[in-house]
Simulated scan of single mutants.
Amino acid sequence: MTVEFSNASYFNNPTSLDSWWEIQGEWVEEPNDRRGGCSGVQRIHKDGKLLYAKRQTGHIHRSLRYPLGRPTVLREQEALLGARKAGVTVPEIVYCAAEQSAEGWRALLVTKALAGFQPIDEWYTENDREQYGETLHQQLLVEVALTLARLHTARWQHGCIYIKHIFVRINTEGSAPIPEVALLDLEKCRRRLTSKQAALHDMLQLRRHSPWDQDDWQSLISHYQQAMGRDFKSIYNATRR
């Protein structure tokens, strides 16, 4: 049994799972054993392009729909496609495939690198907030709020929204710098029945793992609630733990 997705327009000659599997690179997330199998991420190059390949063997999740288990990269593929459809900037899928044999599942997800983006916590550590000033920083908080609102309005819950999963790029091509925001690591992302369920889980989790003080948090949440078209008192009043 093989499940395959390929962005045929990205390469002149789309290849098979075996061909992609043979391409090796530098480990950026060392293989680790969990979920009954092994998963890791490599940085690879193909046709002069920088890509990231998530390799998995026997690494599955179970649900009511898939009681026997299913590779987590297939869930991540669905989330990436759903988030992009909702207007959220996420890594572009180049290739995704999962194959089940007598030995178990083997799965691979290849995505295009987000050129120029960096984790937002690194952006703060490098003192870019001071470099660009408070006006741009407030614009950045608005972009974070709008990005998360787009995801949640479509009922997608990130599921593991740590600050390291929010990436930022400052576009300096125009007359004034403009912050852009992207989300990464959607492996645990799933569709919820309501946008409220997605919102409450992610935003309370983000608050516990964010660098923002109360003023910054309330600014972000004010823009978020405006974009969502509703108030979330528990989120607005959340304090750092």
Rank of each mutant, 00 (worst) to 15 (best):
S63T: 03
A115L: 12
R62G: 06
R65T: 07
E29P: 00
E92S: 09
I120V: 11
E30L: 15
A149T: 01
A115G: 03
A83E: 08
W105T: 02
Q77H: 13
K112G: 04
H61Q: 13
Q138S: 13
L136T: 08
E29F: 11
E103L: 06
D33H: 15
R55Q: 12
G37M: 14
G82A: 04
E122A: 12
E78S: 12
E76F: 07
Q131M: 09
A97F: 07
A79F: 09
E26K: 15
H137R: 11
P119R: 04
K46C: 11
K85M: 14
E26Y: 13
R65M: 09
E76L: 11
D121F: 06
W27Y: 11
G48L: 02
Q131L: 13
A98W: 02
E130P: 00
A86H: 02
L68Q: 08
R35W: 15
E92F: 04
L80H: 01
H137D: 10
P119F: 00
E30A: 15
A79S: 04
L80E: 06
T57W: 05
R62E: 02
G40W: 11
V28K: 13
N127D: 14
V142T: 15
V110C: 01
R75K: 10
D128V: 03
A145G: 03
E99G: 00
P91C: 06
G104V: 10
D128Q: 13
R55T: 05
V88I: 11
H137S: 07
L114E: 07
Y95G: 01
T111K: 01
L141K: 02
W27K: 01
T147C: 08
I93G: 05
G116Q: 01
D128G: 00
E30W: 14
Y124I: 15
V73G: 05
R70I: 04
T89Y: 05
Y66A: 06
Y95V: 08
P31E: 12
Q24S: 15
L151M: 12
Y132N: 03
E143G: 09
D33G: 01
G58P: 03
L140I: 03
P119V: 04
L148C: 04
